[in-house]
Amino acid sequence: MPANKKYLISSPWTKTGKIIASILGAWLVSLSFHMALALWIDMKSVLVTSAYSIFIVWSLLMLVVYWIKSPWKVWGIFLLSLIICILAIYFGKTL
């Protein structure tokens, strides 16, 4: 009983986009989110927690990539959260 094909993606572009989003995109979002948290909350606690939580958040974001149907929407959400986190890191470091 392989999965019903009518629900799956057939375009190779979409497939590649989703694979890249689930590995690279999810990694960047998870990483920058933890860095921003470390700067704004408590450096030490977030750093040691990130030893395991980065990977858990990473894998949950991988689920999100496949849960949301449109790859554009996925990349949009990831880029937006990335920008927010990078801004938070920037201001966290300069302020």
Partner: peptide
């Protein structure tokens, strides 16, 4: 999770060291 940490710690440590 621990396997990720031992195998992939470089991809989380290196950026953290550089940025933070």
């Amino acid at each position: 999770v621990t396997g990720c940490f031992y195998g992939l710690s470089i991809v989380i440590l290196l950026p953290s060291v550089l940025v933070l």
